[in-house]
């Protein structure tokens, strides 16, 4: 059986807290280009702490939610120990794999409403 340890690296009980923005549907560009490095939008907060996200031609009003069950952000990691059992190569390789909890996500900003269009014409300058 494959056994993989899940741990907070250098766990001293504390773990970084990361964030999540949840959007309805998919983020797409008009043309299929890689998303890397692209602007998604501007996130504002009103004075009463309502998150407002402006994406392209759309405006979304959201909500900050405390997650009832937080998420752990896991990445696979490889331990560089000497394999314990040289004769079980397969086994030894598995043993080196670990999942690291890089951070915990305790709240998310949820934008669940259908986005409202805001601009008829995109100014050339933008």
């Amino acid at each position: 059986m494959v056994q993989i340890a899940v741990k907070i690296p250098n766990a001293e009980g504390t773990c970084k807290e990361w964030a999540m923005i949840e959007l309805q549907g998919e983020l797409e560009t008009r043309h299929p280009v890689p998303l890397s490095g692209k602007l998604i939008g501007d996130l504002h907060f009103t004075h009463s702490d309502v998150p407002v996200l402006i994406i392209g031609h759309h405006i979304l009003y959201g909500k900050v939610l405390q997650l009832e069950k937080p998420f752990a952000v896991l990445t696979k990691d490889f331990k560089h120990d000497e394999p314990m059992e040289q004769d079980h190569q397969q086994n030894a390789t598995h043993r080196q794999t670990e999942y690291h909890v890089n951070a915990i996500i305790k709240k998310k900003i949820l934008f669940k409403t259908r986005p409202k269009p805001i601009i008829a014409n995109v100014p050339k300058k933008l």
Binding site: L23, Q24, G25, E26, L27, E28, T29, R30, H31, V33, L35, K38, L39, I40, G41, I55, G56, H57, H58, R114, P115, V122, K124, L126
Partner: peptide
């Protein structure tokens, strides 16, 4: 699909 969104027009 409902709720699909454009990012800034990629031609710009």
């Amino acid at each position: 699909m409902a709720g699909e969104m454009d990012t800034v027009d990629s031609s710009i």
